[in-house]
Simulated assay, not measured.
Amino acid sequence: MKQDQAGGTASGPNGAVPLPGGAMSGQGASTTNPAQAGTPTAPRTRSNAQAATGNPPAATAVAAGVQGDASAGKQLYVGNCAGCHGADGGGGIGANLKLADGPKSWTVAQFNTVLRQGKLPSGKALNATMPRFADSQLTDADIANIFAHVKTF
């Protein structure tokens, strides 16, 4: 693990952050929230998302043009993006997401490419500070949900 340069939050590979119980976000291990006295909280994985929604695998989300769920995306954004982009998307270590030519003007497929490959719609590569999220960390459906939340800024 390395120390994040903003506020000392420990982060791991690809920006993973510690979860209650010691697991890192994106690792897929179930944890228990001590504040809820033994109530298990399941990680956001493709199988959990499928079980909850009955939808086809998340890999089809971008191809199918899924719009995403902003309320589900808010929770994912807080855990994976807010540390750099700010709680309201206004920027910090990471870019301001509220700009007119930013994510609000992109398609979900373009947003997915940014998070997976670190490439802006213009073709410009982002610096190494921006994590490249693997499908095991964020599914395409998770990314569509985050995108829906970002569009609310």
Score class of each variant (00 low, 15 high):
N112V: 05
N112L: 10
V62S: 01
F133I: 09
T53S: 08
P13G: 08
M24P: 06
T107N: 12
Q67R: 15
C81L: 05
S105L: 10
G15T: 07
V66W: 07
V17K: 08
G38V: 05
R132L: 07
T39S: 09
Q27S: 02
A87V: 11
K2L: 15
T9Q: 15
P13I: 12
P121Q: 03
G92D: 10
A10D: 13
S71D: 07
P34R: 03
G73F: 04
A144P: 13
G118Y: 09
Q117H: 09
M1V: 11
G22N: 03
T129L: 14
A59T: 13
A51N: 11
F111D: 00
P56H: 06
D69A: 12
M24Q: 15
A141P: 01
H149N: 14
T152I: 05
P40H: 05
D4C: 12
T60A: 10
K104Q: 13
N55S: 09
Q117M: 10
Q117A: 05
D4E: 14
M1Y: 13
T129Q: 06
L99W: 09
N127P: 07
A51H: 03
P56M: 09
A100L: 06
Q5D: 13
A37M: 15
L19D: 01
C81P: 05
K119I: 15
L126W: 00
G118E: 13
S25M: 05
A128L: 07
Q67N: 14
T41S: 13
A6L: 14
V150D: 03
L99Q: 10
P43F: 06
D135W: 11
R132K: 14
M130S: 00
D142A: 11
N127Y: 04
V17W: 09
A51Y: 14
G123K: 05
L126P: 02
N112M: 04
K104T: 13
I93D: 08
K2W: 15
P121G: 04
S122N: 01
I93P: 12
A125Q: 04
N127R: 05
A100Q: 11
D142H: 15
A51I: 04
P131N: 03
D101N: 15
G94H: 02
A70F: 13
D140Y: 00
G68R: 02
A37D: 12
G91L: 00
V114D: 00
A42D: 02
C84P: 10
W106G: 09
G68C: 09
A37W: 13
M130P: 02
G91Y: 01
A10P: 09
L138C: 05
G15S: 09
A52F: 11
A59I: 02
V108Y: 03
H85F: 02
P121Y: 00
W106R: 05
V78S: 14
D140I: 01
A6G: 15
A29C: 05
P20V: 09
K124D: 11
F111T: 02
A52M: 04
A6D: 06
F111H: 06
A141V: 00
Q117P: 02
A52I: 06
K98W: 05
S71W: 08
A141Y: 10
